[in-house]
Nucleic acid binder design. Sequence first.
DNA 1: AACTTAGTCACCTACATTGA
DNA 2: TCAATGTAGGTGACTAAGTT
Length: 297
Amino acid sequence: MELLQLQYFRTVARLEHMTKAAEEIRIAQPALSQTIARLEADLGVPLFDRNGRHIKLNGYGKAFLKKIEPALALIEEGRAEVADLAGLEGGRVFLSTTTHKCFTDVIGSFISRHPKARLQITQASTLDKIKQLRSGDIDFCITFPPLQEEGIEGIPFLTENINIAVPLAHRLADRSNIDLSELADDPFICIHAQNPFRQMTDAFCEQAGFAPNVVCEVDELSGVIHFLRTGIGVAFLPETLFEGQEMGFRLIRIENPDCRRTYQIAWLKDRYLSVAARTFRDYVVDYFQEQPKQYKI
DNA sequence: AACTTAGTCACCTACATTGA
DNA sequence: TCAATGTAGGTGACTAAGTT
């Protein structure tokens, strides 16, 4: 059974006249008769009652028409939606990212450049991002560390330093850079253990030869900042998060070990990416390449 | 009888599949 | 890779049957 047969049948059923239907479809009448005959042979029942040179939709035809009309409407709707998605102007990009300032900057910049493109943004854990990519719910996700997953491709586009934040009265507050091992005995304010940022900073501490003495675990970086101001401990913070802001604590560069993280924009290798999606990906990569000073690529 | 309409037949073309 | 083959969809010519 072919889509063409169904479309021809719908026209014949509506007009109940082969010649008029053929004219509307713009094919010769015999071709239409044969197509309808093939459809009927395929179904095993006649869809029309033939009475002389008149044809009339019969019970089978009416029942069949009732089923295929919404199906054909759905196909036409799908066709229109795909055309819409594939176009840049008015095209949609589905993205899972974080609220990191530099990403909100690039997203804002993209929208101002392409005001008709629509971005659908969600937040999710790394595991959920991978699931969403595989299910086709999103076009891209922004992650760190870069995903090492079968069938997923990515481009690293931003590398930033992870600094140490210390209270203003801390003994190292006047230093511009330190060795992380100097904080081996300090209390740490951390994100909860399941967060990738925490796993990364634990690895930094391990490289420095100690396990962090965690005195406080919070859900978000905003919570870390709140407790930093109380002076109960030190914390890891990404440098781009607070550029140019007076936060009531000091940010100190870590010289050793190498404390940096790299963000990647990732997508499913075999998934078709719309024009809008490809344009967005290229825009993100170009955006950070053009602003090396601000974002320390 | 002339016209109209649905169906049949022969043939052509395009395209997918298959096997060497 | 490419020729052979099968299938579907197309056309024009024609026939049969109903209508005017």
